[in-house]
């Protein structure tokens, strides 16, 4: 009997976990299809009506796209995320190359120092970062949003591991073939760490797309708003927030991530397993 019970139990636990993760999301999506009144009347008592719009309306989406600059914010977010991914990959892989392939005094110390910055919570960095970035004249710019994060200690750590696993002989062979550091980096090392690069790229994309606090601090102007900030700030200070639009915005903001995840699922999990640390 115990044999039969075990998988059942497992299935039950998994189902519970799934519900816990899935319910809020379902709630967001279903609310985005309800009129403002319906959202509130369905909250309590919790029933299936909370999670399913009985007669769905597209009104929230219509007004979201008509009234707010969400498309512009989406574009901003995409630019920031893409730029952040590209620059993070470039910077971290070059740093990892230097730390694993070029002998210099104190390289270990440099690595440890970089990793130490990992230990500081973002909240503690916020004020000094703001001073530096706005001091550089980058407040209210997309560059200002991405620049503090492109030198990612997490990325360096991940890529350093990957680089160290590549046999040294490859590089020796390339040197005999006449390659210098740049050529070895581009033509021998990078093509052999595609999976770690992809993983880091995905984690960075996710981090960038979902970031809220820093963009809120550094880029207030509508021109430079990213999606998360735009959603939170729709509705002016004098108005009640339009919750339907908020939910619609949240849904729109999540869709690209879901698509990406479905496409490249394998690398997400690999990234988590490889680092043992959350990005």
């Amino acid at each position: 009997m115990a044999r039969f019970r075990k998988p059942l139990l497992l299935a039950a636990v998994l189902a519970l976990i799934l519900v816990c993760f899935f319910a809020p999301f379902l709630w967001i999506v279903s609310n985005s299809f309800k009129p403002q009144l319906g959202i509130f009347s369905d909250v309590t008592p919790i029933s299936w009506r909370t999670f399913l719009p009985l007669d769905p309306v597209a009104e929230n989406y219509r007004s979201l796209f008509a009234r707010t600059n969400i498309l512009h914010a989406l574009l901003n977010t995409a630019i920031v995320a893409a730029g952040q991914v590209a620059l993070t990959l470039l910077l971290c892989s070059m740093a990892a190359y230097a730390l694993t392939r070029i002998k210099f005094r104190g390289s270990q110390a440099v690595f440890v120092l970089i990793l130490l910055t990992f230990l500081l919570p973002v909240e503690a960095l916020l004020v000094p970062l703001y001073q530096v970035v706005s001091g550089l004249g980058l407040s209210n710019t997309l560059t200002g949003i991405m620049i503090p994060w492109i030198a990612s200690p997490f990325g360096l750590f991940l890529l350093k591991q990957a680089f160290e696993e590549l046999p040294r002989d490859l590089e020796d062979a390339a040197r005999i073939d006449g390659a210098g550091h740049l050529r070895i980096f581009v033509s021998v090392i990078l093509p052999n760490v595609k999976v770690p690069l992809l993983t880091l790229g995905l984690v960075t994309f996710l981090f960038s797309w979902n970031s809220f606090l820093w963009p809120l601090v550094i880029a207030q102007s509508p021109d430079a708003q990213v999606i998360q900030v735009a959603i939170a700030q729709q509705g002016s200070p004098t108005q009640l927030p339009n919750w339907g639009e908020t939910f619609a915005g949240a849904t729109v903001a999540t869709l690209p991530l879901i698509l990406l995840f479905l496409l490249l699922q394998k690398y997400f999990t690999q990234g988590m397993a490889m680092s043992g640390i959350k990005g």
């Binding site: 020796d172 005999i176 073939d177 006449g178 050529r183 093509p191 052999n192």
Partner: peptide
């Protein structure tokens, strides 16, 4: 000089022809 390594040190992402010609292309 040319050198042959114990574990061959072939570039995994290149074909045989590309492996052999890498140095010549450089």
């Amino acid at each position: 000089i040319a050198m042959v390594f114990q574990n061959y040190a072939l570039y995994p992402h290149m074909t045989v022809a590309q492996n052999m010609s890498f140095g010549l292309r450089l």
